[in-house]
Design a protein around this nucleic acid. Structure first.
Length: 261
DNA sequence: ATGGTGGAAGGTCCA
């Protein structure tokens, strides 16, 4: 089974990119973030035509929004509201092999990395804490967690560790909280099993840099984790940088993972 | 310290 995750930054604007990507890469299940559309406008018919018969999505006007589209049926679907908000930042589905896939869009956190003066940053940190509590209560088997977590936890997950230490996405409070979530939840950070920790690895390049590929000032904000019992079944993990060069690209690129499930 | 770009909206807010 080939599963991918992608912050699409408007699924309606980039539906052609989604169709091209899923066809060319033969994706079975695609988790999307920042779909930015209410459910009644989700492009379900186009996706149906290319074989994604099973879909579960929650969106809202302008902001947030998550979706899972699949060639395999779901035996359960659902979501939780985090930080007592009903924004659309999380959904999960269950497959008939009893594996659960959680799809998250964690708050970006604004500009100022100080929880006492920036409510967006406080929201982000609280969100990760709630994820930690939730996944420590539940069984740590047969789970997959993907999404735009808006944190680059390791030194080589950003173009300059030193220069980004005080930039939201790579501050110590964020990276420590995220690494704690990985540890306490017994998660395996797939991409870092395939790419050594001393090699640069990014999934996002800002729109604000026209020469994004030359300057290569990226960050690894997108993640694909599996519970430990599934790790031996994971055959490959790739960050598919090609889409960043397509027409009207998202600023994030997909992660593609092959799993024998 | 600032501004650079993009999306949804049709004014700003958010990233």
């Amino acid at each position: 089974m080939r599963i991918a995750t992608w912050n699409i930054n408007s699924v309606r604007l980039r539906i052609q990119n989604v169709l091209r990507f899923t066809k060319e890469q033969n994706i079975d299940i695609l988790c999307l973030q920042e779909t930015k559309t209410p459910d009644e406008f989700f492009p379900r018919d186009e996706l149906e035509k290319i074989g994604f018969k099973h879909k579960y999505y929650r969106g809202e006007k302008s902001y947030n929004g998550v979706a899972i589209i699949s060639k395999f049926e779901f035996t359960d679907t659902g979501y939780l509201n985090w930080c007592e908000k009903d924004d659309t930042r999380h959904i999960y589905i269950k497959l008939n092999n009893n594996i659960e896939i959680h799809n998250f869009y964690v708050p970006a956190g604004g500009d100022e990395p100080d929880i006492s003066i920036n409510p967006k940053f406080e929201h982000k940190i609280s969100f990760i804490h709630e994820m930690k509590n939730y996944f420590s209560l539940n069984t740590k088997k047969n789970k997959i967690l993907v999404g735009d977590l808006n944190i680059a936890p390791l030194e080589q997950d950003v173009w300059s560790h030193k220069q980004l230490l005080n930039v939201v996405s790579h501050t110590p409070i964020e990276t420590e909280t995220l690494l704690d979530l990985i540890q306490s939840g017994d998660w395996v950070d797939i991409m870092r099993e395939f790419v050594p920790h001393n090699e640069k690895l990014y999934s996002w390049w800002s729109y604000r840099n026209r020469n994004w590929e030359i300057s290569n000032r990226g960050r690894r904000l997108d993640h694909f984790w599996v519970s430990k019992n599934l790790f031996s079944l994971v055959k490959s993990g790739v960050i598919y940088k090609d889409t960043r060069s397509w027409e009207k690209p998202s600023d994030h690129v997909p992660i593609i993972v092959d799993i024998d499930i």
